[in-house]
């Protein structure tokens, strides 16, 4: 996974709440068996609206999206994160995210930044004509004006994003601890293993 540190540039000032993953990538585009190529279909239903931010040349190629609360709600489809990454998004700023989507975004190197609504509103206003800078190491979002908003992030996720680590590789190195749990399960709750396959 690509390491990220500073993300700076234009931001799509979307600002709408409850952007669900069906809106990010409709189900009829889920029939792929690869991770690439979904960017062209991202936000298809919003892009059907005249004057939408995604087709506004002022924001073309923006690495940041600013949305309303509950971003990424609904379906667990990771295709939403793949589509966002494929269209060049590196970060989303919103007052809140769906748990599943935030996890999917993280696993695809997309930073999710949670800020209070008033700060998001301020960034939406600034982003109309100015760039936004996200500094992951220092956990801040800044603008060319005096704005400096601090955000919280899970330390493990921060470390993985800064170093571009492969989470599966990290967990596989913990094989002993996993085997210990399996031995306990085998002894104390044997039906869990024994019953999974039909007799």
């Amino acid at each position: 996974m690509r390491a990220i540190d500073i993300i700076a540039g234009k931001a799509y000032p979307l600002g709408r709440p409850n952007i669900d993953t069906d809106v990010i990538i409709p189900a009829h585009h889920l029939k792929t068996i690869t991770r690439e190529g979904l960017g062209q279909f991202a936000f298809e239903t919003l892009r059907a609206e005249p004057g939408n931010v995604f087709d506004d040349p002022a924001y073309a190629g923006a690495p940041i999206l600013i949305a309303g609360d509950n971003y990424g709600c609904g379906s667990s489809r990771e295709h939403a994160a793949w589509a966002m990454a494929d269209m060049g998004l590196q970060a989303v700023i919103a007052p809140s995210f769906s748990d599943i989507h935030a996890g999917n975004a993280f696993k695809n190197g997309i930073l999710t930044v949670v800020l209070p609504q008033d700060q998001v509103d301020r960034l939406l206003a600034v982003a109309k004509d100015q760039p936004i800078t996200i500094d992951l190491e220092n956990q801040t979002v800044t603008t060319p004006y005096q704005d400096r908003f601090r955000f919280e992030i899970d330390p493990f996720r921060k470390d993985c994003l800064l170093r571009g680590l492969d989470e599966i590789g990290i967990t596989m190195a913990m094989d002993d601890a996993i085997a210990t749990h399996e031995a306990k399960m085998h002894a104390e709750t044997p039906w869990i293993e024994g019953a999974a396959r039909a007799a």
Binding site: S76, R77, E78, H79, A81, I100, H101, G103, N104, K107, N108, E167, I168, T171
Partner: peptide, 9 residues
Amino acid sequence: GIGTSEVEH
């Protein structure tokens, strides 16, 4: 529910 990277994990 989990995403595909978590399915792989």
